[in-house]
Write a protein that binds this DNA or RNA. Structure first.
Length: 359
DNA sequence: CATCCGTGGGA
DNA sequence: TTCCCAAGGAT
């Protein structure tokens, strides 16, 4: 139904103006177990088998026919656009990211455009995507890109990993999808597909293991362009077919090779524990941020506490989110903790008893 | 390494 | 209605 998206490098990363190196304050590069595993070019078990070749072909064909058309997959999309999409997509479904991503790209087409703004503007236009710290980190990343990379998104795993909000997954994903690098991309979708297809289990381990990284590396095609395509294909299969709940195995292009199906779909060996929500600080923080995002002016602390006679003072627009906040009926000390936490995290500023987004 | 950090649509 | 959980990262 959709035209095959070409999984080609979206930027001919030409001269990336590497003249400005040696930043005054170099970020300490993070070292994760998966990165060390990535570094060891452990040729350990390269599975150059006919079966693997067939798998690559089957998934590639499926991807060509079934992949969603997403703007950040267009060859014309800049590395900046890919980076923004990847951070927005962290723990957030595609359908909710789409409108916000389009708004951001129009508003801030380049890192320097966002870097010129106050961080609070990034938070405001993050809307209701959730985890607003990501907006803060994206703004900080834009600043770092301008100050340390001449305004262009770094094109290597290491360079990307040094950016705020960019971890192992995002660094590999941007290097692969925006620059065509052969990187071992492992997200929750890919982990689940590997668990079922290869390991024969319903779910991957609770946390990412070194064995999974080795497996992911072993499954990737050698050719960089094909590896990029493979990474995108496995991720898309996990998102559309090999889903967490009620996988559509009938529509799976590789069901004949699936170890989990062959084993009779054994149930997961553990139950993922859900996150508490009602009555938590997170819920309260979310309600406070909903108020600050729509507020035109700083919001007095009393309005959060509901002491004034029921919102007579609420500035227009803030009445609804304030009412939602009051409905939570949280203890004063919890509200205090939430507000302090937001200020500590840089999501809000406090001036003379008034709260606002960071200016 | 376990925990924290938002949100809303679908099962 | 309730519960699950989606292209994770930082501490």
């Amino acid at each position: 139904m959709s035209s095959p998206p070409a999984a080609e490098p979206q930027s001919t990363k030409g001269p990336r103006t590497t003249t400005k190196t040696a930043p005054a304050k170099a970020r300490t590069p993070r070292r994760t177990h998966s990165e060390s595993a990535r570094r060891q070019h452990a040729p350990s078990h390269r599975l150059e088998t006919p079966q693997l070749d067939a798998l690559h072909l089957e998934l590639d064909r499926w991807f060509a026919a079934n992949a969603r058309e997403l703007p950040w997959r267009e060859p014309s999309c800049s590395p900046w656009g890919v980076l923004v999409s990847e951070i927005m997509l962290q723990q957030t479904p595609v359908v909710r990211v789409l409108p916000v991503w389009l708004d951001w790209m129009e508003r801030w087409p380049e890192p320097a455009d966002l870097a010129r703004e106050a961080s609070g503007e990034a938070v405001r236009h993050w809307g209701r995507l959730g985890y607003p710290r990501r907006a803060l980190r994206l703004h900080a990343a834009a600043l770092a890109i301008v100050e340390e990379h001449g305004g262009t998104v770094p094109g290597t795993y290491e360079g990307l990993l040094g950016l705020p909000g960019v971890g192992d997954y995002t660094a590999a994903a941007v290097a692969a999808f925006a620059f065509g690098e052969r990187e071992t991309v492992v997200d929750t979708n890919i982990r689940r597909v590997h668990a079922r297809l290869v390991s024969g289990t319903a779910l991957p381990a609770p946390s990412l293991t070194a064995a999974e990284m080795r497996l992911a590396e072993a499954l990737m095609p050698e050719d960089p362009a094909l590896s990029v395509r493979w990474n995108a294909s496995v991720m898309e299969l996990g998102a559309l077919v090999c889903t967490a709940r009620s996988p559509r195995c009938m529509d799976c292009p590789v069901r004949a090779e699936c170890a989990w199906l062959a084993a009779g779909e054994p149930p997961p060996s553990y139950v993922p524990k859900g996150q508490a929500w009602h009555g938590t600080d997170r819920q309260l923080r979310g309600a406070v941020m909903a108020v600050l995002r729509v507020a035109e002016a700083p919001v007095a602390r009393e309005l959060f506490e509901r002491t004034p006679a029921d919102l007579g003072f609420a500035a227009e627009g803030t009445a609804v989110p304030l009412a939602a906040l009051h409905r939570l009926n949280s203890a004063p000390e919890q509200l205090e903790r939430a507000l302090d936490g937001l200020v500590r995290d840089g999501l809000a500023e406090l001036h003379d008893g008034d709260y606002r987004l960071p200016a």
